[in-house]
Design a protein around this nucleic acid. Structure first.
Lengths: 332, 332
DNA sequence: CTGTTAGCGCTTTCAA
DNA sequence: TTGAAAGCGCTAACAG
């Protein structure tokens, strides 16, 4: 059996309170401090965090609920959030919603039952109702990557619409006006689609229906199938905008299979500076999300709410995402 | 404040023990069962898992310590392990060692302090000493992906040496005998390197020194730099074996930059069936690790030890990794 | 600065 | 089946 504070008491002859005080950084007479430290070493004592949590009502653990843990984007966010939290003594309970709103709701309940101090959520659902239990439990939630229509939660996203608009502007500035778009109907996909439309409208270019592809969620298949379809058209677009990393991969697959060269035959612009766009040839021109900032800002806000209470206004951060020029866009 | 079992007691007039029994699936008179269920609904009661853990000495949480959470391979393992564990009511506390042995040791301590019931570890260090604290705490550990020289821990890996040997055999069968290898000095890198050498020896082919590249850890840079160096040689190899996914990416980057065609100019064979090899052209020929099996077998063994105790022998599973033919190897 | 005491919310004997 | 009581390991008044 692991040593408890009582064993330290027996070993040192001191009172429980003194030992507890020492453990929590309080002032203890030097002589006693030494005794305690010796006993701790001798007995290999480590405080039981469960017991501690029961009385402090703090678990020093936050839940991180991810819409899809298998994708690279999540891994990078996880990495930065986890580094930030660990440095501050917090652990991270991870839950994968697997793109399923029902699983997401279960995950929220799960985290609450585990008494997490707060939740970092990359939402699947856009329904604020799924978060109702967190409100009742008075557990703060920070939304990452996607927003939910509700002023009850902090959130950290990028300027999705604007970023997509700038990306499309870039194509137009390079002489393109026959541009297709492949997007999802998720939050980010929709916002980015809006940005695309806005740019096209601004430029006075009409977008034919057969140049718009979409599906419920972002996926490699969506990109692949859409690109295949686009290539069957009599009038092919000269450029394609994708609203997500996986979609870009699918598009590239399809282009490769059909022997289409990029950017000579068709230009491409996408999202997210993950490993592939750097490895690919040509280098993909893309909108680079500040992933580290999204993660650490989200974690920072969450810890602030946990440790300083709720008496500051909701934070809705929209970070700037820069366009990084690669070689996948041809000047016409 | 959240409702407690005492509130249920007050609401129903029943004893604490009866309610607790109900919560834990015991037999309760139908009439009382109804009362309890009503009260639970009315008060929105959820058992406090922290309190529960304190008395049962079970947190129903396992630690998952990953050598590097940012890479795709980890994400996929995480996905499968998390699905398996959640289904069985277990949570997952995640820690990233960031390829640093010191952080790994801290993570182990962290998990132990959080009273996890068991640990899934993708190790950075190959020193069994880092695991000493888990032995003292009598917390079971299952090693994933990499082994540690010690008969104290279960582990689930693939037949690394054999897989690399088969991959190299494949090159040789296709007429190659001028083959370079790029590996890390980590466990998997070394094992796979051994397999490479074994195959070459079997075929009676000598490997010149300048065809062997290595570094401490697997990385895109290692692949990139090594390939660049290889391409400067007067006598270039006709094929390259890499011992890891990231390394392959680096190799491909270098080939692209130098305008080397694969497999026409140089053939390539690598590890791990993640997204890139499927998107690339040509499709990469590779050793596909059974990632789902690694994760779920590891989790299965861990839960078995947690729930059934330590009275069964150490498990050292070495799963078979199949060679998947792509188009990156040319027949000579 | 130190020690006693009373819980945190739950499970678990044990007797009824 | 039920309930009273003890206690998991710790912190937090409070009095000394």
């Amino acid at each position: 059996m692991a040593a408890t504070i009582k064993d330290i008491k027996a070993e040192t002859g001191l009172g429980l309170a003194t030992i507890s005080k020492y453990l929590n950084g309080g002032n203890v007479r030097d002589e006693n401090r030494q005794k305690i430290e010796e006993a701790i070493k001798k007995l290999d004592y480590h405080p039981n965090e469960t017991a501690r949590s029961l009385v402090t009502k703090r678990t020093k653990t936050v839940g991180f609920i991810v819409h899809n843990i298998a994708i690279n984007f999540s891994g990078v966010l996880l990495q930065h959030a986890s580094a930030y939290l660990h440095e501050r003594g917090y652990g991270m309970m991870i839950c994968d919603s697997n793109l399923d709103a029902k699983q997401e709701a279960e995950n929220i309940r799960f985290c609450l039952d585990k008494q997490v101090d707060g939740i970092l959520l990359m939402p699947v659902s856009d329904n604020p109702a799924v978060l109702a239990p967190t409100v009742r439990a008075e557990i703060p939630v920070v939304l990452l990557d996607r927003e939910i229509e509700s002023d009850a939660f902090d959130c950290v996203t990028i300027d999705n619409k604007n970023a997509a608009e700038r990306a499309t502007d870039y194509l137009i500035d390079n002489g393109h006006n026959s541009i297709a778009v492949i997007h999802s109907e998720e939050y980010t996909g929709n916002e980015r689609f809006k940005g695309f439309l806005s740019s096209m409208e601004k430029a006075g270019v009409k977008v034919p229906k057969q140049y718009i592809y979409s599906a419920h969620v972002h996926s490699t298949e969506l990109g692949y199938n859409s690109m295949k379809a686009l290539l069957k058209l009599r009038e092919r677009p000269t450029a394609v905008v994708t609203t997500n990393y996986e979609v870009s991969l699918g598009v590239i697959m399809a282009m490769n299979e059909e022997g289409i060269r990029c950017p000579e035959d068709i230009s491409l612009i996408g999202f997210d500076e993950l490993i592939l766009p750097m490895v690919m040839r040509p280098k993909l021109t893309l909108v680079a999300q500040p992933m580290e900032d999204i993660a650490t800002e989200g974690a920072r806000i969450l810890l602030k709410r946990i440790e300083e209470g709720n008496d500051f206004p909701r934070q809705r951060m929209s970070l700037y995402a820069a366009l990084k020029e690669g070689e996948s866009v041809r000047k016409i």
